[in-house]
Each structure stands twice: as structure tokens, then as C-alpha cells.
Design a binder for these strands. Sequence first.
DNA 1: ATGTCGCGTGAAACGCGA
Length: 268
Amino acid sequence: MEIASWNVNSVKARLSAITTWLDEAKPDIVCLQETKTVDAGFPLEAFEERGYNVAVHGQKSYNGVALLSKYPFEEINARLPGDEDDPQARYLEAVIAGQNGPVRVASIYLPNGNPTQNPDGEPGHHPKYAYKLAWMERLRVHTARLLKFEEPLILAGDYNVIPTKDDVYDAALWADNALFLPQTHAAFNALKWLGLTSAYEQVDGRPHQYTYWDFQGGAWPKNHGIRIDHLLLSGQAADQLKAVRIDSHVRGRERPSDHVPIIGQFEL
DNA sequence: ATGTCGCGTGAAACGCGA
């Protein structure tokens, strides 16, 4: 079973890029982020005609997550618990009926968190960075509950976290960025220390393999990338992980997203 | 190079978020 994660930066603008890749890669499950549409505007047919069940959780203009699955959904939960008033569509979780039993998969669009400093120079964090850290803590608390099911769990998405200096083309340029600050690393580690394994690090782990290249400044031709899209796995999922790949070639195509798909291959 | 995108508004060019 192949499970992919891809921040597509608008599902409508990227529909042709997505279907081209689906027809080549034929993943079983895909977690999409930054779909940027309300659910009524989601192009369901393009995916249904390729044999995918589709679950969506979107909003107007920004954010938005979705799940595509060749296997049936047994249960679907939108929204990350911990703040009932949070209007941002960044979390969609489903239990999927795999061939060897259920698999729980979540599509995650973790907040970017920039800017980090208050604009008035007052001490403390900008509300955008505070929201990121609070969201990461909500994810940690929710994940602790999910791990009690002791089932294959795959938390896949755009984490907006650069795990180490070897996951960015020039760490010094990112030192003060919300994707790389010590508190961001601390929150990411607190999540992983619940007992999650990062799929890429388990089976590959080469430095300087990126999943995102900015649209600005010729980042793609210069390979000025960062690795911020991750598959975090419970032990039951990690035990079945065979391979991981990053389909970086799609970044060089017509009207690309700024992110590329990361795909885990599992015996599930 | 202050070098790019997509979205919504509203009818072109701008503000926002990334």
C-alpha cells in the first residue's frame, strides 16, 4: 500500500498536475493540503473517476485538507480537538479499511507560524507563532490519545517544520524562521517522543533531500529547498514501512505546486 | 533584482498568506 502526502497549493489550479501524477504513481491513499476551496467547489469527479473515495475539509481561500483513498473510509473526523473556535481547516483524519485491517490516516496542514515577532517590538510572540505552537500542542495531545488504539497510524502532511540543519540548503538563513526556531523543534520532538517514527528518517535519511522550493528567487533551479513534508508513524505502521520516496521531479513541470509528493510504501 | 504564486474582490490592481 502506498500512502502519499502532497501540499498542492490550490486543488483547482493544480488539478491537471495532480491527475497527471496520480495516473503515473497510482498511490492508494493521498493526503492533500492547501486545497484552498470550500467543500462545494472541490473537484470530486476527477478523483472519483480514478477510483478514489474522497473526504474533504475545506474553507474559503486558505488552508483546506483532503483524503483520497482506493479503500473505503470506515470513519472520518475533521478538525483537531482542543479549540472548538478554531476556524482554520487544517486537519482531517480517517480510518481506512486496508486489506490487512484498519489503518488510521490524517492529512495535516500545520500552521506556518511566520512572522514570529510582535510587530510593535514588545517582548513575546506574534499571534501567528503562538497559534503554531498551540496547534502543535493540540496535535501532541490528540496523537497521545490515538496511539492508545495501538493500530497503524500515519500522520501525513505539511508540518512546516525543518527537522535539522541538514534539511535546508542554508540553515543560517532560516535560523530565526518559525519553521526552524528551537521552540518549533522542541514541539516537534515532543510529538515524536510519544513514540512516532519519521518515515523518511527510518528508511532513507540522506541529508539535503527537499520537499519544498519557494516560488521566489529561482529556488528550484538553485535547489534552495527545505524538507518540511513528513509521514509520522506509529510503531504498528513503522513496522510495515518498506520504502520512502520524494517525487521531486514534479516540481519542474508546468504550473507546479511549491511542494512535491512524499510517498511511503507499506506492507499494510 | 524589491526577482513568485493563488485567492477574492470586482472588473484592474491590490491585500493577504505562503
